[in-house]
Amino acid sequence: MKMPTRFQITRLAILTLVATLLLLPYIYMVGFSLKPVDEIFAGGLSPLPREFAGIANYLGALEREPLLRYLANGVIVCAGILFFQLLFAVPCAYAMAKLRFPGRSLMLGIVLFGLLIPIQATSLPIYVGLAWTGLADTYTALIVPFISSVFAVFLFYQFLRTIPDDLLDAARLDGCSEISIIVRIVLPLIMPAATAFGIFSVVSHWNDLFWPLVITRSPELNTPPLGILAFRSEEAGDSYGELMAGTAIITAPLVIAFLLAQRRFIEGISLGALKG
């Protein structure tokens, strides 16, 4: 093996330091989730438990709150949101990137403008609307406000522009309708971008506290962050081990998903549709 150069060593050291700093809270969270309460309060910097209380903490966490139910809620909401986002954003981005029609640039302008508006700004009218239709405090209310994502449209639009027009023309000559082009040509080609967007979307909606807090009241609709909130507001303020275990359970699916899709994710944000 070749000896690493001084530059490589320095670079690795800096990256390791920054990564450790960023991961430190997470490491402590996992560490605390394995410790008994008195050890947490005893101080000490080591994240490793002296006395292993992991099983008790995790079982306790699962017993105290229906965490699995919250996880399932998170899956339902995130999957629903992502499904509709892709369903609407891909054809929309395709039309804007590859078809000629009047008002195309105006539409692109609106999309760009839409990127600037945070959910907090529109939440009140959406809340009123949902309350008026009687849909507040349902899964629908958790999903509907996010089904059209301007970010997705913009991301796919950028990606689709790298697909040569010849390819789509060839498909038209081969007998594909515009819908078949999207299904057979565009969708497979934008898979990396769709994966990247999927991760962005799932992470932000899994972790979203604001909107579920606004729109739901029933505890059985709790999404994972609301679940943690519910955990904390329980009377026992000292069960930090269980709290940390709960938090670890709730964040675990995301971490696992990212590790599995890591390569595609990086591909998706750094490449166009066609290599070379």
Binding site: P164, D169, L173
Partner: peptide, 20 residues
């Protein structure tokens, strides 16, 4: 007429093969 209704085939300069 739409391209598919014309029964013509095009060989493009870029070949336009479906990469996937």
């Amino acid at each position: 007429l739409a391209p598919k209704a014309r029964d013509v085939a095009v060989v493009f300069q870029s070949y336009a093969l479906y990469p996937h």
